[in-house]
Nucleic acid binder design. Structure first.
Lengths: 238, 238
DNA sequence: GATAATAAAATTGTTAACAATATATTAGTA
DNA sequence: TACTAATATATTGTTAACAATTTTATTATC
């Protein structure tokens, strides 16, 4: 039926590696919502035992990337448009709180570290590397969360970020958008430097609304073959 | 070594039931942080197979009530004081966002439903039933989250509420505190009715700070026997 | 006695075989 | 054909036996 995925080294896949591969395929829409994820099929595909696949599917179900029904197996999750909007709304709340926390304890070192991130992001989009630019952009948000120092909020944000690609139709691509994101990020850093919480929160809010307005919330989807999982996309990540 | 826990009906425990029992024991501090949770011991205790215990421990680990280390098993989690404070800080952010969302879509029916909850809470503490009063109080917060209609925020709050008992030393008990909580809840409902978001958020903030100030963040803990799990406490829940 | 090396026991991790359930196929009936 | 019932296949769920690892106990050496 379908070929096998091999590691370049010839070793066997670890649980985490299998998890990442499937997760990435889901987030890239190579495995569209509703796709049945059969245990033996996946086990053969990766050359691992079914028990391992089972654990992976359970973990994916927990992070809501996969739906599991007793005795009926797992499918790629099909989040509703409402869920997508809820995700974005929650993100605005979380990131606002992160900024408030961050600014309360910010210092020069933090600001300079953020500036370095901005530069890297800028470089990426200027040389037209949209994929990298997007990844850097996401890292900027993660970095804010890390610097804020609240592990709970950080975990929540990471959860949201992980789930987001599944609820949107396509990733943001063109250069104009990349530049725009970068400018908004810079504005946030400026507000942090001035310790202007209100402004930072306001800009972040608009930034996130802006992002949400640019994407299309994914409405419904068709079916596709599991073997499509084989080749990774040349496209972006988050 | 240790006796067996039996269901009154004589049936076998389901996975969810075992989960709840262990979770409750952890949250009641009957199983203090650091306690080793051995698979065979638990399996014998509940009269179930080891595989089921295994799944339960993994689930508990995911909700951070249990720490799992490869090849070294599971122990009751020992959250730091910082983690406790982070949890409360995150809660303030989440519940503020919930209130903002709720008020934006509130109507008469919602308000009256909340009023009913207030009454039940009041009844409980007036008749001196602290346990019930505390449970009702927690339900009030859950209800706010549900009425707000954002499933993501609701899930986050439930996660926080579930983890909270583990980071505090003891549950809030005396009648004065019960009355105080109830009064603050009433004030929040009043603000919702007037659609006064700013006030609602402010009162909620103070309410949560108040709660946090009344508890003691749990610093460290000793060891205890697993069999203590047998008898449930006569004490409160969350 | 203290420490290190070795052996024994206990504990967790994996798997192949089996059981239970759900889905697909076929046969039967109007 | 359209529908139902019966059967076969495919898929998920469970478990007992085994493997790997860690912990405890024992012995040896200083």
């Amino acid at each position: 039926m379908s070929a096998q995925i091999e590691k370049s080294t010839g070793e066997r896949f670890s649980e985490d590696e299998v998890l990442r591969q499937i997760e990435q395929a889901v987030l890239d829409h190579r495995l569209p919502p509703g796709t049945k994820l059969k245990e033996v099929q996946l086990a053969n595909l990766f050359g691992v035992k079914r028990g391992l696949i089972r654990k992976v599917l359970t973990r994916l179900a927990h992070s809501r990337l996969v739906d599991q029904t007793p005795n009926r197996g797992a499918t790629v999750a099909r989040p509703s448009v409402k869920e997508g909007r809820d995700l974005f709304a929650a993100r605005r709340a979380i990131e606002s709180a992160i900024l408030e926390t961050l600014i309360a304890r910010s210092d020069e070192q933090m600001v300079s570290r953020l500036r370095k991130m901005l530069e890297r992001e800028q470089k990426a989009y200027r040389r037209g590397d949209s994929e990298k630019a997007l990844a850097q952009s996401v890292d900027f948000h993660r970095q804010l969360a890390a610097l804020a120092g609240n592990g709970v909020l950080e975990a929540f944000l990471n959860d949201i970020i992980r789930r987001t690609p599944l609820v949107i139709l396509a990733h943001l691509g063109d250069e104009e958008q990349n530049r725009c994101r970068n400018r908004e990020h810079a504005e946030i850093v400026a507000a942090i430097e001035e310790r202007d919480t209100r402004r930072a929160v306001k800009v972040m809010h608009q930034h996130l609304l802006h992002i949400e307005s640019k994407i299309r919330h994914k409405p419904e989807a068709q079916k596709a073959d599991l073997a499509t999982l084989l080749r990774p996309l040349p496209e972006a990540t988050t």
